[in-house]
Design a protein around this nucleic acid. Sequence first.
RNA 1: GGCCCGUUCGUAUAGGGGUUAGUACGCCAGGUUUUCAUCCUGGUAACAGGGGUUCGAAUCCCCUACGGGCUACCA
Length: 529
Amino acid sequence: MLNAPVSLPLHPPSGRTESMMKEPLSNIRVRFAPSPTGPLHIGGVRTALYNYFFARRQGGSMILRIEDTDQQRFVPGAEAYIIESLRWAGIHFDEGPDMGGPFGPYRQSDRKDLYPRYAEELVKKDLAYYAFDTPEELDTLRKRLEAEKAPNTSYCAAVRLDMRNSLSLSTEETRALLEEGVPYVIRFKMPAREDISVDDEIRGTVTVNSATLDDKVLFKSDGMPTYHLANIVDDHLMEVTHVIRGEEWLPSLPLHYMLYQAFGWEPPVFAHLPLLLKPDGQGKLSKRDGDRLGFPVFPLQWTDPFSGEVSSGYRESGYYPEAFINFLALLGWNPGTEQEIFSMDELCGAFSLERVGRSGARFDLDKARSFNQHYLRLRPDDELAGVLMQGLKGRGITTNPEVAVKVVSLIRERAVFATDLLEQGLYFFEAPSDYDEKVVAKRWNEGTAGQMKALAGLLDGIAPWQSPVLEGAVKEWISAEGHNMGAVLNALRLCLVGTSAGPHLFDILDVLGKEESLARIARAVERLK
RNA sequence: GGCCCGUUCGUAUAGGGGUUAGUACGCCAGGUUUUCAUCCUGGUAACAGGGGUUCGAAUCCCCUACGGGCUACCA
């Protein structure tokens, strides 16, 4: 275990105001910055989780910032979904759009007016420029460069003077176009040839030559900044000290670094997390994978507001949030010890960027299930009984808590999810409607019906109706009659449960009670002949 | 195509020059049990390949292969 001093500020799930009032223990500030273009998938949750671990480990602040600069891709409900998902997972924020904070607003669309002056500042410094090229012209450029097999096929230093922008045009021409209201974007003026080296906490120094980079659009013709500009401006304004994000951003790192240089700002520490991969084939886990693979890729169930398509979620599938985060935390990070079971507090205390891996992690459903099973076993009987009773209620069956607790204590070791309890325990409340054919074939032959009738006669006379008493009497009877123990008991189980699996047979008899037990035997004898 | 990142059992990983290459999940076998599950015991199974460096390389360097990411007026 780690012996280093650990400070864990409390963030009670229901007491945000309390955490807001709490002064951070350090100036470490991290952010999770999702885009509300749909439900957050588990890769995003893991990124948020690592940011959260890091913030709490360092006694810093955790910020939620909504990056909604793409008006086309905005999806109604996505922001609320993201917030609810993170809350369910136990990831709490110190600042965000739903709670405010000293660096707000926390939604980029609400910060819209802020960005133009930063883009223009760069133009004034000759580090960015206005560009008037139409989509068709850009398309033509791309095709031309591809045909020429140019080393860099993008809008870059090598070709920008061939295009319509404030670098190729005269000052007068540029001013005229601007005044006419011709649509324009502002592009970053990437240096022609320059090695750019940036340190990454996880990958070390990454070096790229700017000749392979392009003049990225910073400000779009629709009046919104692109991600690149907004992200740098906001991280700076919000005093973010550590940018912990997915590896898919690594190619943008040199650009972002150059932007900090251009503004003369001190860049934050960067850490690019390995990707979460699909469990089957290859590629990063995507929203589309959904139920195709038989496991949820979203924390919560999501209904697409346009298509109405429903995607399953971990919560609705019966996962406990603590199992979900414990499993997710270990996908790309490890404590360096053999410990695998971690509470949220333990994870926050043990986490460090140094122990985050570099290679992509594949999701494993079996492992996820085993974590859930572990946490389910920690649950007290009465809590699980409550879940069972809810399930029964949905099927129109009411029972009292004592019976539910008794049943749960018998079946809980067979459950992976609390939702399994209903399926595993239904026969305690409902006689089997049919009998497993394979078991019938194996355990039910000519003499069985007679044996069951005789056994029913024996049971009828046993008192008190309690598991150990029943067991003693029945086993004694089987021996005395010279019957086969397995044959009789399995046939009896078939009568009571309809199949061959389940808890201790005499416990089932006990819970069922004499009347119901005898009725089920009679019914089975009748039905199976 | 270009640029960048990566590569230890099926999966997640430990390991940072000398280890019988460890652990967990899964899988297989045995034990316990009337059955299933649980539980216990044991087992299967990995350093992508090739060159170096070194007395010695899973560990350091290079190349190759393979995998992945990015390559939008998306994030």
